[in-house]
Simulated scan of single mutants.
Amino acid sequence: MDVPAPQSVTVVTHHDVSVVTLAGDMDLDHVDALRAVLPQVCSGVGAPARVVIDLGRLTFCDSTGLNALLQARLMCVASGRTLALSRPGPQVARLLSITGADTLFEVAEPGELPPDGAQPSAPSP
């Protein structure tokens, strides 16, 4: 029996970029943690001008998770920030492609992520 990966959302700010790392599943049951951090990261006073959402540890994303990503994009645009997705896995890339959302997001190269915290060693619940 497969045990789902623990879901976590971690935010690391490094100079001019905030990296939001998602791990586990991003679906109806797990999207609230992401939604909780988006206002501060995407439109908070003093937040960096660039936001990268690292999807490399995301195991599953449904339409609810996609909607949260689209909301993040709108918040960033409204506050003059840029948003990029990084390391989408095959399932997430397919979801973005099927829905046409892939044309709305910039995809950041892994080298654009801060080396000291973009991928925490232990996910936080």
Rank of each mutant, 00 (worst) to 15 (best):
V3N: 11
C42R: 00
T64K: 02
A84Y: 01
G80T: 05
A93H: 10
M26N: 08
Q40V: 05
M26W: 02
A101F: 09
R50K: 11
D27R: 04
G46K: 04
V17I: 05
A36W: 07
G24L: 02
P90I: 15
F60N: 08
Q119K: 12
G46T: 04
L104S: 03
E106I: 10
M75T: 02
V41L: 02
S97D: 15
L74N: 05
R73D: 00
C61L: 08
C42A: 11
P123R: 08
R94A: 10
D62C: 12
T64C: 08
S79L: 00
G44L: 00
N67Q: 13
P123Y: 06
A101I: 12
D54N: 12
P6A: 11
T82W: 02
P114Y: 06
D16V: 02
T64A: 10
G117W: 07
A49Q: 13
D116M: 15
V3M: 09
G24P: 01
Q71F: 07
G117E: 10
P90K: 15
A5F: 13
S124C: 13
A101W: 07
E112M: 14
L95C: 03
A78I: 08
S79I: 00
D27C: 07
V37T: 04
P115M: 11
T64V: 12
H30L: 08
A36D: 13
V37Q: 01
A36L: 12
S124F: 10
A47V: 02
M1S: 14
A118Y: 03
T103Q: 12
Q71S: 12
L95K: 02
D62H: 13
Q71T: 11
D27Y: 04
P110Y: 06
S124I: 14
S86Q: 03
I53P: 00
T103L: 09
A93N: 09
D62W: 08
V11R: 02
Q119E: 15
A47L: 02
F105G: 01
L70T: 03
D2L: 14
L58T: 02
V3Y: 12
A36C: 08
A23W: 06
S63Y: 06
V77C: 03
A49M: 09
L104C: 05
L22K: 00
G111R: 13
V41G: 00
R50E: 06
A23C: 15
L34T: 04
R73G: 00
